[in-house]
Design a protein around this nucleic acid. Sequence first.
DNA 1: AATGTTTCCGCAAACGTTTGCGATAGAATT
DNA 2: AATTCTATCGCAAACGTTTGCGGAAACATT
Lengths: 331, 331
Amino acid sequence: MRENTTLKKIAEKLNLSISTVSRALKNHPDISPETKKKVNELAELLEYDPNPYAVNLRTHSSKEFAIVVPSLSNFFYHSFITAIEEDARDYSYSVIIYRSSNDAKIEHEILKSCRHKRVSGIFIAITAETTEIEPFLKLDVHGIPVIFFDKVPEYESCNKICVGDEHAASIVAEEILNKGIKNVLGIFGDKNMSITQARMKKFNEILSDNSQVNIKSVHATSSEEAEALSLSLIPDFLAKKSAVFCMSDEILAGTMKAIQKIKLKMPDDIGVISISDGMIPKLFYPEITYAETSGYNLGKLAFSRMMRCIAGSSFAQTIIDESKLVQGGSI
Amino acid sequence: MRENTTLKKIAEKLNLSISTVSRALKNHPDISPETKKKVNELAELLEYDPNPYAVNLRTHSSKEFAIVVPSLSNFFYHSFITAIEEDARDYSYSVIIYRSSNDAKIEHEILKSCRHKRVSGIFIAITAETTEIEPFLKLDVHGIPVIFFDKVPEYESCNKICVGDEHAASIVAEEILNKGIKNVLGIFGDKNMSITQARMKKFNEILSDNSQVNIKSVHATSSEEAEALSLSLIPDFLAKKSAVFCMSDEILAGTMKAIQKIKLKMPDDIGVISISDGMIPKLFYPEITYAETSGYNLGKLAFSRMMRCIAGSSFAQTIIDESKLVQGGSI
DNA sequence: AATGTTTCCGCAAACGTTTGCGATAGAATT
DNA sequence: AATTCTATCGCAAACGTTTGCGGAAACATT
């Protein structure tokens, strides 16, 4: 096992002190140009790279961000991560990705590890079962900023970056009105999730304003359940100009299975519209019209908020990212 | 910013030396049971956790694995990561995930970072443009085992865990023969990729043995290209008992778009079969029959290989994971 | 009572940096 | 010629651990 080159080695070869080498490498004004040149050349040759553990031990700063997500099999998180990584690179931070598996215990361990590694900051989408926020506040006490995104806690005074659930639901509802749809089947997710409540409230609100539209809302907690509901309910909707709204990708997947099974054609037999990050909707023909929730945008917003926190802003803020309608041909 | 508790603080409160506290915490036989009890209790109370930077600086070991993948939006890698994380937890290793974005330069930086962090080991699926393997060999010199998976280099003497491309292609071909298909359109990926060559060779080999089957092979490098090819070629196949084989999810997505566009019914109008991790095939009705390449299996195999390496095995090995046919109803 | 064994614990060095401070030389100022 | 600057550099402490070694009791053996 070959050893890494250290300041000490460079110092010995050049007959200098360790401190001089260290300063030369960071372009400290105390060091003469000639010495700097010599040191830099040898460092280059020996492929010197500072030992991050020693640096951190000394300086208490790690120049790395942590991103914690419940799951990775998700286009939305993937594009969020992409956005963060892009920006982080510009500021020469590196990013490490953690996966909580939607398990509060694992999440807690990850947090602890982040604390001890003294990461520079944490971006986190909490698990569905996360109830305590003290651990997060504790991180702030330790000087590690926490930016919540997507799945955020109820707690008020913390930094949250969310997709605009109300806004997404509203542009979907508007589109339904525009198309002159008279019958709507809305399939929503788990009743207890705040995302469900927000999307459903706004959606029903807008469509109820228009007395000519007939709405039926149901809940499904899995793709299979969405499929079963679609199979049993959609046939009743075929008589008149109608559409089904799927609140999420998971539900959309189930509904599409049913539509294929009954051999319905979009948009004539039935319209389909959803809220999505855009991956699933593009697998079908015609492509599904959807309100796009952009993980990428969210990432950009989260990063700039993070940098502000690191710069010293202790002011907590909730930022909402609005989505835009992407036309498929399904409605 | 509150400070973390250190050995020193515990030592002072208990009027002990730092070394005694350290040893007590690791249950060293030199320490009396009473002292151990006192120390452990106070450590618990103060939420002591060793500073990983100090530990690493001292011991040169980090107890963490790195997983490097080109992309995260991929069910296959996701299940690979899941498998590694499960096993790592059992051995109290933690895992950090890096994303190379299919960029050799970024990959190289990640590798450097891994080296300086002295991760305990690296699991990596290399980028399409990775040509040099010296950096990987250098890691081995530094005592960091590297296990390649999925996308592996040509280089012989290294540890590789791959899906059995030949085997997957063969069971797909067998299924085509079983179903009595006479006309086959095979859509393969980029000609230059070894995975394409392996799958195509075996596929054509088996079907050619059977003189009654008529095969046409084409290449597509994107989902859109696959769709275009499907649109133009599939109509010619409708006359007789025929099927299309999609080498990958990307191609399958394009082909399915075309099939929906032409309004064909599976399996009567045309059969569809593919090699996949299983996510995309389940979005359609009927579900697509596919040879399953399991990231999860690969992960388990990779991990046990890794542990053997850490235990000292310098013997390089290539392990092939065979896949199994998952029946949909598409052929 | 003298010696040998345990049992329990502390000293101090080391890992590789960063950084405040002091030291030395020559140059510039009186 | 005595003094003050300035430019360069080195010393040493600190970050929080781990660990070889040695030391002092307490106990057991002659």
